[in-house]
Write a protein that binds this DNA or RNA. Structure first.
Lengths: 347, 347
DNA sequence: CTGAAAGCGCTTACAG
DNA sequence: CTGAAAGCGCTTACAG
């Protein structure tokens, strides 16, 4: 491997001059620049990342802490990872992907060894044991997902409360009076999935304000249990004309369940989901939905992180929570409710 | 940040002794060990990764080159990534995830800068522009996926030819004489997805040997086009009693298509897929399938890579192609064909 | 068994 | 504008 010493020698300059040409930090004469560039080309020189990191305390690597939990839906997670990864590369950073179960320990390891310039935490829980580590770390970090205590942290998330309200509004305006919200199971909430109740509570409140009945049901986070949960929920609430599906696994299973009963949306039941366009495409979901925007959240998170890393006073600027406003993507699965005498959705 | 110098000072030893205790490379007295360990604890010392990499030329990071192509099914890809990532962590390595479009350039970048000790290439094509870079690189690499010219490379892959034969055998033995293979579209093959024709050609040959009719159809790699392709294929071949579904997107869409026509498997049509158990779970696929074993392939690949990295003569050992034997997982979607007079599967 | 010294390949004040 | 020198934090022969 060629070193910068080799480059300097071939170019006939000192190592510091070669370094200055390559970094562009100091002005150098065009002639010198040309000589150094030629030397780099002939030698096929690439700076040694470890040596550079040692000298500058910068690695140009961002740590990405993902969590693949059994009770969450892996394909949805992938989209966040890709969103972060793509934006990082655009800004000149590589991604160290950490998917191990013990995220707190992993975070400690990669920050204290200075392997990364900063970190992005995905799938943040209400009480997340990674946050104390992050607060004590020597590198900045941003979260995707709102924890219970976001103080001193940069947080990006979908506005789940507004999402809940929007879902209810949309169906209420179309004339629906009997709604069913398909949510995540209780243990997701207990484990810290605060987004679940943020959406649910707001939906319930909005329904109350509008004098609409909103029932809530928890469905399993994976196949095939989620299908059974959906069927049971429809049986239990035959008057329902509108479905709010916040649970992504349930959304993926819904076409099967509706077809089983000969139901069509929006003819027999109106459906509003909460998932990304990419997710809809992967699972052939024909439902109107609130876009969950994983790519945009990943992008915002990385941009903010890079600002903290690179801007001189970036580390000290005020932290805050930034919500993405939910947007409804119409895929034609909602309409006026079927007439009251039009039978039931129970099988 | 504490350095090893601080540790040495607190422990009252020299830096080299502290280093030796931590690495375990040289024998040290128990008392000294204890003193050093205590100093590490009180200071919260973690070695600086860059400095260590510079001194040892080892980073304990493995580069993972993924490719997310529009014409392949992203959720299937995730499983390989997780397989590699989990095994790497078990062996003490972190993962640098590279998902950018220009894989060859990325590979050049991470190897020549010595950011990684080795690389795993996913989704390798028949003619893959990353391979020349890998052959010229100063770090070892292993592939998941068989290229046209595997010389000088470590390759792991499912035995697609045997997979094709096994699928045909399984249905032929049950009495099926009219089979349909749902494959990938031509442009996947042209781009270099050799696995497509490896499976197809072997299936065709096996069918010929057994005197069974095997038709082949290409289906789109994503929703919703794949559904239309499946419907058209069933219409075009009404005599078919057995489906071999190698295309993962087609497998995910098949339940919808069959239900549309009131078909059940195995009553009306027998189905054998090729996908992982995890994939089956995610998409609620009730089909007997050849296990594609992404986790196992990832594990084998990483183990081999780490062997090359760590064993003294590991770099020089003979390279080779290792196939995983296909295994059929029975999910009850195959049986004897319906009687010849039993109607057709066309809608 | 322990320690002083050199070296890994960069960058960056600093002096000229 | 250019170069000699120091330093980043480790590891590792080498001498004792």
């Amino acid at each position: 491997m060629a070193t910068i010493g080799d480059v300097a020698q071939v170019a006939g300059v000192s190592r510091s001059t070669a370094s200055n040409v390559l970094s562009g930090n100091k002005r150098t004469s065009p002639e010198i620049q040309e000589r150094v560039r030629r030397a780099v080309d002939t030698l096929g020189y690439t700076p040694n990342a470890g040596a550079r990191a040692l000298a500058t305390s910068q690695t140009r690597v961002i740590g990405l802490l993902a969590r693949f939990l059994d009770d969450e839906f892996a394909p949805a997670m992938l989209q966040y990872i890709l969103g972060v990864s793509n934006t990082a590369r655009e800004l000149g950073y590589d991604i160290l992907l950490v998917s191990e179960a013990d995220g707190a320990r992993a975070l400690q390891r990669i920050t204290s060894s200075l392997m990364v310039d900063g970190v992005v935490l995905l799938n943040v829980a209400e009480r997340d044991d990674r946050l104390d580590v992050l607060r004590g770390a020597n590198r900045p970090g941003v979260l995707v997902g709102l924890p219970g205590d976001p103080s001193g942290l940069d947080v990006f998330d979908l506005d789940f409360a507004e999402t809940g309200r929007l879902m209810v509004q949309h169906l209420a305006r179309l004339g629906h009076r009997e709604l069913l919200l398909v949510s995540q199971p209780d243990h997701v909430v207990e484990r810290g999935g605060a987004y679940v109740w943020r959406l649910r509570d707001a939906a319930v409140e909005e329904a109350r304000l509008r004098g609409v009945t909103l029932r809530t049901v928890a469905a399993a986070p994976s196949q095939p249990e989620v299908g059974a949960d959906l069927r049971a929920a429809l049986d239990a609430h035959p008057d329902v004309t509108g479905l709010l599906v916040s649970n992504e696994a349930a959304a993926a299973a819904l076409p099967f369940v509706l077809r089983d009963r000969g139901l069509e949306s929006p003819r027999d039941v109106s459906v509003v989901g909460r998932f990304s366009a990419e997710f809809a495409r992967t699972f052939s979901l024909p439902y109107t939905s609130i876009e969950s925007a994983p790519d945009r959240l990943g992008q915002l998170a990385v941009r903010q992180l890079v600002r903290r890393i690179e801007s001189p006073g970036g580390r000290e600027e005020a932290h805050g929570v930034r919500f993405i406003s939910p947007e409804l993507v119409d895929r034609g699965s909602t309409g006026a409710p079927r007439p009251a005498d039009g039978g039931t959705i129970a099988g």
